[in-house]
Simulated assay, not measured.
Amino acid sequence: MTIAAMFAGLLAAPAATGEPGDSAGLRPVSYLFSDAVDAERDNPGAAPPGANDWTCKPTALHPNPIVLVHGGPETVRLDWGALAPLLANNGYCVYTLTYGAIPGMPGPLGALGGLLPIEQSAQELRDFIIKVRAATGVQSVDIVAHSEGSLVTDYYAKFLGGAKKIDRFISIGPGWNGTNSLGFGALFTALAARLRLAPALGAVVDPICAACLQIQTGSDFLRKLTASGTTVPGVTYTNIVTSHDEFVVPYTSGIQQGPSISNYVVQDYCPGDLTDHLLLPYDKVVAQLVLNALDADNTAYPTCTSTPPNS
């Protein structure tokens, strides 16, 4: 996700409403991104409904708490306005954090996470999961990550001891092999892509969005991340992508091959679905695929609903 995409999303929202799965419970679930924008504006930095109830105790049916790891630059409310209450309504203990925010940054940028180097963001995720495990008394968590959040989680799994603490790892719009979306809407991405040609620009970009350089195809960070393989043993992987992804280019960068990996393309279920990168967490096909991945004994075929492109 980019800054430009996020602000473009303020003006556009999917038409789908309703809740996949058995979730006619306690919290309203809206698939309108504009509702999440309004909620963020009214209560900046707040967790979405259904998330961060530190008294929640996992059940025998859903023994693992879920940690939602947002994309970047992003906030937890903007990214998880639909999935947090949906998962809570389905009986899960749900937790989420804002990682990678720039300390002391004023104004709108100060509310955004996912801007610091991914290595630092992964340390924040590690510390948050320690807190979740202590509060719930569990050994393992399930991760649902969007965009950059998948790389943050992967770094935690491979280099910070997270492999033995993650059971299911569900990635929405990941970019395992990086992105070639040069010039896509955001100045950050364009500048980061040119750093090799103009190193002096690093002094400008790195303090604002160090992660923007790291997600580019061929970056030193991605070479390190994939040097030992794309996955870690013992973790079950699910990747959910859209062929209309304008940020992860090509969108197949979000697909992995290997044991314990499932890959899903939204358009295989709904060919007319125009959901892009920003709106993936607000797509009902995606929502049902997430529920299915978390509970393989209670699955349903995703409902096909078309959403307008984010323009």
Score class of each variant (00 low, 15 high):
H146G: 12
P271C: 04
P63I: 05
A15V: 04
H146P: 04
V285E: 04
V241E: 00
V76G: 08
T2S: 15
T231I: 06
A227H: 01
A198R: 12
P207G: 14
G9N: 05
E148Q: 15
G185M: 15
Y237W: 08
Q267P: 08
D38G: 03
T153S: 02
Q139F: 01
L197H: 14
P259Q: 12
S228L: 13
Q120G: 03
P271G: 02
T189R: 05
L278A: 13
V205M: 10
L68H: 07
V265R: 05
L115E: 13
I102E: 14
D142A: 02
P117G: 11
I240T: 00
H62V: 06
S147M: 08
L225E: 00
T252Q: 12
P259F: 07
R27G: 00
L83G: 04
S140Y: 12
Q267V: 08
I261Q: 10
A186V: 06
P106A: 13
L280V: 12
P85S: 15
T2Y: 04
G234I: 01
A134Y: 07
I255E: 07
P233Q: 00
D273A: 07
D35P: 01
L191V: 11
Y156C: 09
S243R: 11
T179C: 09
D295C: 07
A296R: 09
G81C: 03
F159C: 00
P73A: 13
N89A: 07
F169P: 04
D167Y: 08
W80G: 14
D167I: 06
L86W: 03
N177P: 03
N180M: 13
T179L: 12
G234W: 03
A46P: 00
A293R: 06
A15G: 07
D273F: 01
T303L: 11
L125V: 10
Y301F: 11
G72N: 11
L68V: 13
L182V: 15
T2N: 15
L87F: 07
C212A: 11
D35Q: 08
P281F: 09
H244K: 06
S23R: 02
N43F: 08
E246K: 04
T231Q: 04
K57R: 05
I3S: 09
I66Q: 04
Q123P: 01
V69W: 03
G72F: 09
P14R: 10
V248N: 04
V265A: 08
I166K: 02
I240R: 06
A198V: 11
Y251H: 10
D206I: 06
